[in-house]
Simulated assay, not measured.
Amino acid sequence: MKVFETQLPGVGRRYQISFPDGGVFTIVVHNDGKRSAFWRDEPDADGEELFTTNERDAEKIAEIFEGVFFDPVSDDLDDALSGARIKWVAIPDDSPVVGRTIGDVGIRTQTGVSVLAVERGGQTIANPTPDTQLLTDDVLVVVGDDDAHQALEELLSKPK
């Protein structure tokens, strides 16, 4: 695999990844933070735009490729995790939990979900403590059943 980087004046940077078995994957990082992804089967062929995304979503895609969110489990745990779902939930600007800590809010006792991580400004706080303060634009990575997720949504959106 070869990676080529090219400055695109007035646009941003282009990264082209050529694979030994054929195909070229291109990512254009625009000056405004937008990312565009293209694929072409042959080096000289026209590229097909696969998607365009913002900076935050591009970071999420990169984390997935990096394996941050993947933890293989054996099949014998399927019954133990039955009904459990992991979700990424953004804290609304007007949420009553903004400025309070996880412990003060009582997220687990109030809703039944467990907070696995807090994503904040491109950083991930893994295994946050009850003293972790919740801020606007934080994204909570939580695990629980459907009822617990619904209770969390209600807690986050209650009027102040």
Rank of each mutant, 00 (worst) to 15 (best):
K2F: 07
K2T: 13
V3D: 00
F4W: 11
T6K: 03
L8P: 02
L8C: 03
G12V: 02
G12H: 05
R13F: 05
R14A: 06
Q16E: 15
S18Q: 14
P20Y: 02
P20S: 03
G22C: 06
T26M: 00
H30L: 06
N31V: 08
R35C: 02
A37E: 05
F38V: 03
R40P: 00
P43I: 08
A45Q: 01
D46V: 11
G47N: 05
E48D: 12
E49T: 03
L50V: 01
F51M: 12
F51L: 15
T52W: 03
T53S: 07
E55K: 11
E55R: 13
D57C: 09
I61Y: 10
I61A: 11
F65E: 08
G67N: 09
F69A: 08
D71H: 15
A80W: 11
A84Y: 13
A84I: 15
A90C: 04
I91L: 08
P96Q: 12
P96F: 04
V97M: 02
V98K: 04
G99N: 03
R100E: 08
R100M: 08
T101R: 07
G106D: 01
G106H: 03
T109E: 15
L116H: 11
A117E: 07
E119P: 02
R120C: 09
G121P: 04
T124Y: 09
A126H: 13
N127S: 15
D131W: 09
L135S: 11
D138M: 00
D138Y: 06
V139Q: 08
V139D: 01
V141Y: 10
V142H: 06
V143N: 05
V143A: 13
D145E: 05
D147G: 12
D147N: 12
A148F: 10
A148I: 00
A151H: 10
L152D: 09
E153F: 12
E153K: 14
E153M: 13
L156S: 01
S157N: 15
K158L: 10
K158D: 10
K160Y: 06
